[in-house]
Design a protein around this nucleic acid. Structure first.
Lengths: 114, 114
DNA sequence: AAAAAAAGCAACCAAGAGGTTGCATCTGCC
DNA sequence: GGCAGATGCAACCTCTTGGTTGCTTTTTTT
């Protein structure tokens, strides 16, 4: 009954910064802004929150390293855009977990019925 | 074109601790253990990780407050079990975000084509 | 050319997170 | 009763995180 874990350590390692990036109120807010309000600059974004522009910059960097946003320079301003791909990744990790759980339930059921 | 945000602040507030709980390597590992290996005790779980039993206890408490696990006393030991419901919640938050993004893309497309 | 807008950089700070050790408490069993 | 296993509780420590302020650099605009 022992078998390889369906969720490899490598996958876990990739999932951690992704979920961690989502686990902050300001950053979630930023994501919502970017994905419903379209691409925006840092100064524009920081107008919507209670914290300083520099704080927002740091949050955007965290989101960026997690792959959830990307930025591009345009003249004197930097435009930040939402990156939907990584959201799909996060979704898959959750999917994998709940699938694992279902399998586990199935095993238990089979065991009980034997 | 302005309209109420599809992702309410209340929902965001609930999502934060959920994602934050998932954003740690040890906690993700615990979840994997619990959902593929079935209900386990703290001491049993801490055997699978490099950190102390107390550290694991703290992590389980975080997971518990996020609603991702629950525990019950059985004699002198406490059994921790995976709670799949909250995973579904997390899934829905992600879904909402990507839906919001799609809507936003739709608006942009409509605007360009006008 | 000078002023203003946008962003970048760096130092610093307080609070929280993750971890540890040590000891107390509860429960099952001989 | 008394021992051993499992957990609970509390103090403590260190590093990270989220935030700040102040100053510089780059690019527009007038």
């Amino acid at each position: 009954m022992s078998r390889a874990n369906a969720i490899s350590p490598a996958r876990l390692k990739d999932a951690v910064p992704l979920f961690a990036a989502l686990g902050d109120a300001t950053r979630l807010g930023l994501l919502v802004s970017l994905c419903s309000g379209g691409p925006l600059t840092v100064t524009r974004l920081s107008g919507q929150f209670e914290v300083s522009r520099q704080a927002i910059t740091k949050h955007l960097e965290v989101l960026s390293e997690a792959g959830l946003v990307k930025s591009s320079r345009q003249g004197r301003e930097r435009i930040w855009t939402f990156e939907p791909k990584r959201l799909e990744d996060a979704h898959q990790y959750l999917e994998r977990l709940s699938k694992e759980w279902d399998v586990s339930l199935g095993r238990l059921k089979a065991f009980v019925e034997t």
